[in-house]
Structure formats: C-alpha cells, structure tokens
C-alpha cells in the first residue's frame, strides 16, 4: 500500500475474510437489540413497582384526601378510619434514634479505614464489616430480644430514670418491658452501621492524593490533613452516606418489628413502644382481606415507604455522583 488510501470499489479490495461473515454480524446485532431491551425493561421495573402499588391503593385514595390520610391520628380499619400519622411518626423516631446511635462511630470508622489503616489491615477489616451486612434481619431481631431488650429493661432504663429522668422527662422510663424506641433504635443502628462506614470510606478515598500530600508537606499532622479533606471535600459525601443509612433504616422490617413493641401512639419518652410503617404492613397481611379498603390501606403504606426511600436514595446518589465528578 502506498501512502494514499484509495477508494475501495465496493469491497473488492478487501479480502473476504476481513469482512464480518453474515452469521457473526447477525448474532451481534440480535444480541445488541435483545440485551438493550432487557436493560430498558430493568429501568421500567422501578416505575412498575410504584405504579402497581399506586393502582392497588387507588380505592383508598378516591375515598379519602391525602390530608386526611397522612394527618389522621386514628387507625381503626373496622370503622373505616385510616390515619397514618402515628406510624409515620413512629418510623421517623425509630430511624432517628438509630441514626443517633450509628452516625458518629460509623463516620469515624469510615474515615479511619480510608485514612489510617494499611492495605493489609483494610483487607482484613472490610470482610468483617461485610459479614455484619450479611447477617439476616431476623437474626438481629433475635439478638435484640435476647440481649438489647433485657439491657434496656434492667440497666439503661432504671439508670436513666434515676439520674436524668426528673430533669429530662424525655428520658424517663415508661415501658417496663424494655420493648420500645430505644431497643429498636439500638438494633437498627447496628444494622445500618456497615453501610455508612462503606460509603464514607469510598468518599474519603476519592479525595485526591496530591491534596493530602500537599498538606502533609506543609507540616500538618495526619488528623489535621483528614480534618481538612473532610471539610473541603468529603462533607457532602458523608452527608449522603448518612442519608443512605437513613433510608435503609426506614424500611427495615423484621428486626424492628420484634423489638419495638408495636403500639400505635406518639411516643412521649425514648422508652415508649411505637409502631413503624413496615411493621404495620407485615403484621396485618393476614386479616386485611376481610375488611373493606384494608388492603388498599396497606398498599398505600408500602407506597409511602417507597416514596420516602426513593427520594432519599436518589438525592444521596446525586450528591455522591457530583462530588466524585468534581474531584476528578
């Protein structure tokens, strides 16, 4: 071949073996279309879940206004009263207690894993955290019943009542059984701990190395370097990690259901039993067919849960994505 590329006259220049044989090209095209279709279908699955739940809860939505449902405080399906407020508030409280327990240690652990631990130590510690993720919810529940509930009943409850119960009525003990907000929050906090650690670590490791090196060469200690990279770069990412943990905790069912006491009320102290949304759905599936609108009501509860979780998840993802892109 010379330096000039000549116009091939319809393929006669190229030898036959260079061209894609018909079968190879055909299978490549078919695979492209088919797999693209499956991938597209997966995207539609999210919409499908939401749409199905919305359709099933339509009978309820056409009878009551959203304000009546979300603001209603009485839940008596037999009398046709569906007020979600105690359940939503209960869910929020349990999740808030869990976050209060988990966030600070989890963020510290994530930073430690990313900044201080050697590659070998990380290879040892991360699988341990993965084990913590893998333990089933019901086993956490059993552990909660066996360990956390007695701990709250016999130690934390009496102690809180004697020391700060008078000054802070919020910490006074009201539930003698130990089942309640604090027990469920402790169990839940331990369940979401590894998730927050993993995301925090990922965010902190995406901080550029040059920045760290520049700070260290200026004489900053390691902790000062860490502090600066958290403040300048990592903070939104850590916030996103916390939000992800929150949305995971919000939908947790079995472990919470087993330790939270399941009483539909607005809690007045941290030891009160409450009734979160997932427990409401899980506890009532058997009897819901006989009462009018009951099934629609539970589907609406699932929809509510789905909405909260999707909003939080997408928000956190967007923050992380933007952060990583900005750093690069």
């Amino acid at each position: 071949m010379g330096g000039v590329v000549e116009q091939p006259d319809k393929g006669s220049q190229r030898s036959e073996s260079f061209r894609l044989s018909g079968r190879r090209r055909w299978s490549d095209r078919v695979a492209h279309r088919l797999l693209g279709l499956i991938a597209g279908a997966l995207c539609l699955l999210v919409v499908g879940v939401a749409a199905a739940l919305l359709l099933r809860s339509l009978p309820l939505l056409s009878t009551f206004s959203l304000f009546e449902l979300w603001g209603g405080q009485v839940w008596q399906p037999m009398r046709g009263l569906f007020g979600y407020a105690p359940f939503v508030v209960g869910s929020l409280w349990v999740t808030a207690v869990a976050m209060a327990v988990a966030v600070v240690p989890a963020v510290f652990s994530g930073i430690y894993l990313a900044e201080y631990v050697s590659e070998r130590g990380r290879a040892l510690l991360k699988p341990l955290l993965d084990l913590l993720v893998g333990i089933p919810s019901v086993v956490y529940g059993v552990w909660g019943v066996l360990f956390v509930v007695p701990l709250v009943r016999d130690w934390i409850g009496p102690w809180a009542e004697q020391t700060v119960g008078d000054a802070l009525p919020f910490l006074g003990r009201t539930s003698p059984s130990g089942y309640g907000l604090l027990s469920a929050g402790l169990v839940l906090g331990i369940m979401v701990f590894p998730l927050i650690v993993a995301v925090t670590e990922e965010v902190m490791r995406s901080v550029p190395r040059e920045m760290r090196e520049a700070l260290l060469s200026l004489g900053a200690t390691r902790w000062e370097t860490t502090k600066c990279s958290v403040r300048r770069v990592g903070l939104p990412g850590i916030l996103a990690a916390v939000v992800l943990g929150f949305s995971r905790a919000f939908g947790e069912t079995l472990a919470v259901m087993m330790t939270v006491g399941n009483v539909a009320q607005f809690p007045s102290t941290i030891f009160d039993p409450v009734y979160p949304l997932p427990a409401l759905i899980a506890n009532n599936y058997g009897e819901m067919m006989s009462v009018p609108l009951y099934e629609a009501a539970l589907m609406h509860a699932a929809l509510l849960l789905l909405g909260v979780v999707i909003i939080f998840n997408v928000g956190a993802r967007l923050v992380i994505e933007r952060l990583v892109r900005r750093i690069r």
């Binding site: 995207c43 999210v46 879940v49 739940l53 939908g251 069912t253 759905i281 539970l298 849960l305």
Partner: peptide
Amino acid sequence: ALDILWGIPSIVYGAFGFA
C-alpha cells in the same frame, strides 16, 4: 435504576408481589 432497586425495602417488594 439498580441503585434505587437496591434501596427499596424488601417489605415493599413483598407488598408488590402480593398486589
């Protein structure tokens, strides 16, 4: 979509299946 699906609590999938 995978991220969102990952975040959906399993009780919601249960309700979806039941629907």
